[in-house]
Simulated scan of single mutants.
Amino acid sequence: MEDILRPLYQERTSQQNTLGVLLVEKNEQNRAFTENFNAILLIIVQEAEEAVFTKHYVDQRNETASMYIVTENQLKEWMLLGTNRKVIEWLYHGRILFDRNEYVYNLKTEMKEFPFYGRKMKMTIEFAKLIKRYTDGKAFFNDGHYLDAYNHILHSLHHLARLSIIENGYYPELTVWNQVRHIEPEIYKLYEELLTSDEDLQKRLELLFLASEFLIHSRTERGAEHLLSLMKEKEWWSINELLNHEEVSHYSVDLVTLMEYLIERQLVRSVSIQTKGHGIFHRYYQINKEI
């Protein structure tokens, strides 16, 4: 397949804008990774008019290929946020066809050795998603909406698994449960119990909330470290200041729920500041000085 695809990328390798080219070929183990195409051609460029450009091809043998041209900034955003894991999987497992100044080699090394840039932020992104899903799931459970609670706790376990993988110094792959089964079997067992237990759904959820609570609480300081470190820069913060902070923007959608959880865990406290109106106060947030 590489010989057929060579004309598609060869011209680009002479351009200074091209940083690297990788090839992922379909086999029995990676069908999900390649979107059922016979091959994926990933081309990384410094800049382009479109952050992502895609083309599909078919040859005389009816074999298919998909070409993705991705900018460096877009790729790094995906690496940080984990929002396009299939592309990260291609980068991780893809065979290097072209590599300018070992750019792709260095990216692969960062992923395999981990920590890479933004590790603390990545942990807080996952932790914020975990707390949001867990909190909403518990609220649905208490209201008797067990199917909605099931959906949220399933997602929260997924974020807990990814957080555990990052915490142990690995990069979360697409097959996250295969990873976590070896890294932290306790979390895998919770996931298995949720899916396969003979207990009725209400009882299953009740037991799972109890069992997962300790696993979540024990990770609070490490999981929220990025936010807690940032908050030490000032005496107190308004919620708007935090929501609009450049680094917090990556998990701002879950920030309010996370802040309430941190207050409950006594890592953050709220401060009341008098407004012009009688009996009305601004609510500010500050790090608990005891931590």
Rank of each mutant, 00 (worst) to 15 (best):
His152Leu: 10
Asp136Lys: 15
His159Arg: 07
Ala149Asn: 05
Ala139Lys: 12
Ser156Thr: 08
Tyr171Ser: 10
Asn142Glu: 11
Ala139Arg: 12
Asp99Thr: 02
Tyr117Thr: 14
Lys112Tyr: 09
His152Cys: 09
His159Lys: 05
Arg162Phe: 06
Thr135Ser: 15
Tyr103Lys: 14
Ile125Asn: 05
His145Val: 15
Val104Cys: 11
Pro115Glu: 14
Thr175Ile: 02
Leu174Ser: 12
Leu107His: 08
Ala128Trp: 00
Gly118Ile: 11
Leu107Met: 13
Pro115Asn: 10
Lys112Glu: 12
Ser156Leu: 10
Phe127Leu: 11
Phe127Glu: 03
Arg133Asp: 00
Asn168Phe: 06
Pro172Cys: 14
Ser164Trp: 02
Tyr146Lys: 00
His155Gly: 05
His145Cys: 09
Tyr146Gly: 02
Ile153Pro: 03
Tyr171Gln: 08
Gly144Arg: 02
Met111Thr: 03
Tyr103Ser: 10
Tyr170Ile: 07
Glu102Thr: 00
Met123Tyr: 02
Met121Ile: 12
Lys138Ser: 11
Lys120Met: 13
Glu126Lys: 15
His145Ile: 15
His152Ser: 09
Arg119Leu: 13
Phe140Lys: 07
Leu154Gln: 09
Leu147Arg: 00
Ala128Gln: 02
Glu173Ile: 09
Phe98Pro: 02
Leu147Gly: 03
Asn151Pro: 03
Glu113Lys: 08
Phe114Pro: 01
Arg100Gln: 09
Ile131Thr: 10
Asp143Glu: 08
Leu160Gly: 05
Asn106Gln: 12
Ile131Glu: 01
Lys108Cys: 14
Glu126Ala: 15
Asn142His: 01
Val104His: 12
Ser164Tyr: 08
Ile131Leu: 10
Leu154Ser: 13
Tyr117Phe: 02
Phe141Gly: 07
Arg100Gly: 08
Thr175Val: 05
Asn151Val: 08
Asn106Met: 10
Pro115Ala: 15
Phe114Tyr: 09
Tyr150Ala: 12
Val104Met: 15
Tyr117Ala: 15
Ser164Ile: 04
Tyr117Gly: 14
Tyr150Val: 03
Ile125Pro: 02
Ile153Cys: 10
